[in-house]
Design a protein around this nucleic acid. Structure first.
Length: 461
RNA sequence: GGCCCCAUCAUCUAAUGGUUAGGAUUCCAGAUUUUCAUUCUGGCCAUACGAGUUCGAAUCUCGUUGGGGUCACCA
């Protein structure tokens, strides 16, 4: 049984980097028919945020990740941590330390001045006397004093830490009785049966401390996979300043969950030359031991490419649903198939798609000056008039091909090239020289609207 | 600064110690398209540096340099 978990601290939204580790954890759990748990790390009450968990669940829902079981909140598990802290106290594996924050601070300053590593000096490690008057104690765990701790990491390999370099008797419970991160993470992962910890490699240096806790409590140590960070263009850890880091922003920006997930899974992981991965394929192929060791730079261009790929390959019915979020309702539009077919090949995002559709469906208010200069010539007026006349005489105009025939007819009769009619007609229909195929546009807006737009241009000139 | 991690095109990445170092994105060019976009074809661009091991190194070892992470009564 493989059990993985995603354990964010409540920051108010799901971060793009968080989504990646969540995705990888999810994939690995599902691939093994295991469980993927969600736990909110809210032991620091000063920055607790109720809405934060909801935001994460909302984002999960959007991308289609589903966690198993109930959401565990560490803030509601305080009794459990106290119990285990007490257990360590009883067994002599932890002890109360009465040093004040000020004393600690002073010690640190002294050590730093001597260019030593700032660490607790173990002054209460073997203390047996009476508790000093009026002091609230913290609980410190007895960490090994020498030797080394090796993290067997599925991504980085064996990482050896020298105890003397990194460890001291770190605090597992604050003076107000609340537990600290490295303690609760280990306790919870053990109690919840987590077998595979997949998380960002910024946690690698915390891992020895957690191993100390596992060992003290006699819990089995899980497999660790420390996934490299996602960097921004400056090569630094991705932060809020780097634009869209909130997963739900991607929905607003018109990205599909499939594209986002596909993009994220390919950051630091690959399967030969394959670029496109459906959820089914990810589930079949993903293995955390294939994760790369080096950080990767977050690069939106590839996301855009993936997104346009997924838009092109999404059935119209589905696109229709997605577009509603962006303010375009086509569900009852009788030409919606033609609209979607004409637009889906030319948009990188759903937002672009929505804009393109709205633009096409709306009669142009202005005609682009540069376009007129380039595409509206002396003979254009007569050509457009002939075309309008042909349209009026035609019957049964429904499909793009019907309109195409009319255009062919006019072009043949006047003995001109397609460009002679295409350019002015495009200006009439779109107000500019770019856009979807003219036959599609006309089929979508219909004969009357086409004639109206031609008239509007002729009146304008 | 201590400790830890990392190093292949601009970016994401591939390469049982033996490949003209491959693919993808971006960019550029051409073809297709009445336009733009799509699509197709082609092109540019990389093993950080220095030693060592080896018949042979992107790959193994050491060093250098560079980058990142982490060092709380935060998580």
């Amino acid at each position: 049984m493989v059990v993985t978990r995603f354990a964010p601290s409540p920051t108010g939204y799901l971060h793009i980097g968080g989504l990646r580790t969540a995705l990888l954890s999810y994939l690995w759990a599902r691939r093994n028919n295991g469980k993927f748990l969600l736990r909110i790390e809210d032991t620091d009450f000063s920055r607790n945020d109720e809405a934060a968990a909801l935001a994460i669940v909302e984002a999960f829902k959007w991308v289609g990740l589903e966690h198993d079981g109930v959401i565990e909140y560490q803030s509601s598990r305080l009794a459990i941590y106290q119990e285990y802290a007490q257990k360590l106290l009883d067994e002599g594996k932890a002890y109360k330390c009465y040093m004040s924050k000020e004393e600690l601070e002073a010690l640190r300053e002294e050590q730093t001045a001597r260019k030593e590593r700032a660490k607790y000096d173990n002054r209460y490690r073997d203390f047996t006397g009476e508790a000093p008057e009026g002091r609230e104690a913290v609980i410190r765990i007895k960490a090994p004093l020498e030797g080394s701790i090796t993290v067997h990491d599925g991504v980085k390999g064996d990482v050896v830490f020298n105890v003397a370099d990194i460890l001291d008797d770190f605090i597992i419970a604050r003076s107000d009785g609340t537990p600290t991160y490295n303690f609760v993470v280990a306790v919870d992962d053990a109690l919840m049966g987590v077998t595979d910890v997949i998380r960002g490699d910024d946690h690698l240096s915390n891992t020895p401390k957690q191993i100390v806790v596992y060992n003290a409590l006699g819990f089995p140590i899980p497999r660790f996979f420390h996934v490299p960070m996602i960097h921004n263009h400056e090569g630094k850890k991705l932060s809020k300043r780097d634009g869209a880091t909130d997963v739900m922003m991607y929905k607003t920006l018109g990205y599909t969950p499939e594209a986002l997930l596909n993009f994220l899974v390919r950051l630091g992981w690959s399967h030969g030359d394959q670029e496109i991965f459906s959820m089914t394929e990810m589930l079949e192929l993903f293995d955390p031991s294939d994760i790369n060791r080096s950080a990767s730079v977050y690069n939106v261009e590839k996301l855009d490419w993936l997104n346009s790929h997924y838009i092109k390959n999404t059935p119209n019915e589905k696109l229709c649903e997605l577009l509603e979020f962006h303010g375009v309702v086509l569900i009852s539009h009788d030409k919606r198939e033609i609209i979607l077919d004409a637009i889906k090949e030319r948009a990188k995002t759903l937002v672009e798609m929505a804009a393109l559709i709205t633009e096409m469906l709306t009669r142009p208010e202005v005609f682009d000056e540069a376009a007129l200069k380039k595409g509206y010539k002396e003979e254009s007026k007569a050509i457009l008039e002939s075309f309008a006349e042909a349209l009026k005489n035609a019957s049964e105009l429904h499909l793009p091909s019907d309109y195409h025939h009319v255009m062919e007819e006019v072009v043949g009769k006047l003995e001109i090239g397609f460009g002679k009619i295409g350019q002015p007609l495009r200006i009439a229909l779109m107000g500019k020289l770019s856009g979807p195929g003219l036959d599609s546009v006309m089929a979508i807006i219909g004969v009357d609207e086409t004639l109206a737009r031609i008239d509007a241009l002729l009146a304008h000139q």
